[in-house]
């Protein structure tokens, strides 16, 4: 599902005269199988978010190749990446990233609108999805009227509405209390088992990482080997 080949990335900071190059990722290689839950753990500043953004096509790596569902996306332009993301990748963010002026149902409906789905099918799908994430009582609630857990459920429903084969989750439980976190992790596991959706989670929380079939660890921009040793 995801193949990362020799991906490196660095930021250039400062003005031209005093430019500083900051390496963030160094020659990353790994592969995620279809239907796997893979977690990527690492401390703040280790480069895990940058790697997730590269996989999601939000930033381009300085070098290396990214393949999603056998499509090499690295050289694609923004428009093509957006279309691909809409069809193949669902994104869940730490701060939920719901549009505040839209209700729960409208937020979930958004990918369907972008996809050009008819209103009738949209209404049906949104109702099904609300039931699946146990929010059928809150379709007309605005994000500000929902709890953190409910908002994250809306975000998950929005990510799943077009049945993407891959979900990228950036600290999905970062803004939740422990009870809600457990509920959400159970939901992720359920969706993975029932629908065979591949999850790629990044977290610094070991409890979240523990639900994954496989854990990857990143440190100072380099992927650690299975035994936790830095590659040479």
């Amino acid at each position: 599902m995801i193949t990362i080949k020799g991906v490196s990335h660095r930021y250039t900071m400062g003005k031209k005269a005093k430019e500083t190059v900051v390496p963030v990722l160094r020659h990353i290689n790994f592969h995620v199988q279809k239907g796997e839950i893979v977690s990527l753990v690492g401390k703040s500043g280790s480069g895990k978010s940058t790697l997730l953004h590269i996989i999601g096509g939000f930033i381009k790596p300085t070098s290396g190749e990214v393949e999603i569902n056998r499509a090499a996306i690295t050289a694609w332009d923004e428009g093509r990446l957006a279309d691909f993301r809409l069809q193949h990748i669902g994104c869940i963010f730490q701060n939920f990233q719901l549009i505040p002026s839209m209700t729960a149902a409208q937020n979930i409906e958004l990918p369907l609108i972008l996809n050009g789905t008819s209103k009738q099918i949209r209404d049906q799908k949104v109702a099904d999805m609300l039931r699946q994430v146990e929010l059928e009582a809150y379709p007309h609630h605005y994000p500000s009227e929902l709890s953190g857990g409910q908002q994250q459920r809306v975000a998950i429903a929005r990510a799943l509405i077009l049945d993407p084969p891959l979900i990228l989750a950036d600290e999905p439980t970062g803004s939740l209390d422990s009870d809600t976190e457990a509920e959400l992790l159970a939901l992720i596991r359920k969706l993975n088992k029932q629908n065979g959706i591949t999850f790629f989670l990044i977290t610094h929380d070991q409890e979240v990482a523990a639900i994954a079939d496989r854990q990857l660890e990143i440190k100072d921009g380099q992927m650690l080997q299975a035994n936790g040793v830095m590659p040479v």
Partner: peptide, 15 residues
């Protein structure tokens, strides 16, 4: 922020 969310979901810049 709303534009950012829409683009993250998969809104084409043309749209």
């Amino acid at each position: 922020p709303d534009i950012g969310i829409m683009k993250a979901i998969g809104a084409n810049p043309k749209t």
